[in-house]
Amino acid sequence: MKTGKAFYMPTLKACLSIFRIKTAQGLQYRMAGLAGASTSIFWVLIEITVYTIFYTYSNNKEAGQIAGLSLRQLVSYAWLAQLFFLMQPMRIDSEILGKITSGDVAIEMCRPIDLYFHWFSKTAATKLTPLFWRGSITFLVGIIMPAAYRLSLPASFSGFICMLISFASAFLLCTAFGMLVCALRLNIKWGDGPTHIIMLMGGILSGAYLPLQLWPEFMQSFLLVQPFAGYLDIPLRLYVGTMLPADAYWAIGLQITWAMIFIFTGRSLMSVRLKSIIVQGG
């Protein structure tokens, strides 16, 4: 095995090239982006309506405030959650899945490049491309809504910068977890069931359906350190101001730590799987 710069530089270049080509492919789907955006917008509006009812009319209307999340913050959270949600690994990239099930993985293995990083680049591209059409339309609609439904400005400028950094880490984390699931899926006999359950658990624990701060009090410390908070809860807390920029260091550090753990396990799992891989069909 070649090591050091001589080996990793070409790999890095190839990965960037793969990322680029996959992004170019993803950006072709404008109509899908528009359709997706209308789903997101509709969903957010329902969410906001429901939260508004709870915050105004429920028996325990102070509960949200006590948990530290005002209705205004919650509205912004809901909008941004839709954007971050697009990066979440909800399914294995259809191209990669197709290659696993049809046996086309054979061709990928005939490339002089580490298959994990090859697919990592592809997965990363598929995480980012929906943001381009679907994400940007949703965002624009969010900021032009009437006041009660509007995506507000960030709590502070430094909070916003921290959110951006945390966003990048979330992107890394989502891709890394997607790849871990993908490595699990390389066991062809499993089918799609188990991997779907795993990804859905991640989605729920990320706060995409209910912001983590609104979960029961006794779960709070667990919720914050578990890996999926890094998907969107951490960056969004930084944006709406329920987490102070001073806390961003450990929060982003946590995101990156989890991402590294996922990358390490994913890659080792994949190399084990590849050794015994069954290449399907002719």
Binding site: S17, I18, I21, A24, D104, I107, C110, G282
Partner: peptide
């Protein structure tokens, strides 16, 4: 694999939605 080439008649190594040129460019980097 950097010293061998493979053609599988029943599988494609080109990117389906993109011009072949793009696939070639990618292979150049790989």
């Amino acid at each position: 694999v950097s010293c061998i080439g493979v053609v599988f008649g029943q599988r494609s190594q080109l990117w389906w939605d993109l011009p072949a040129q793009d696939s070639f460019g990618l292979l150049k980097d790989i």
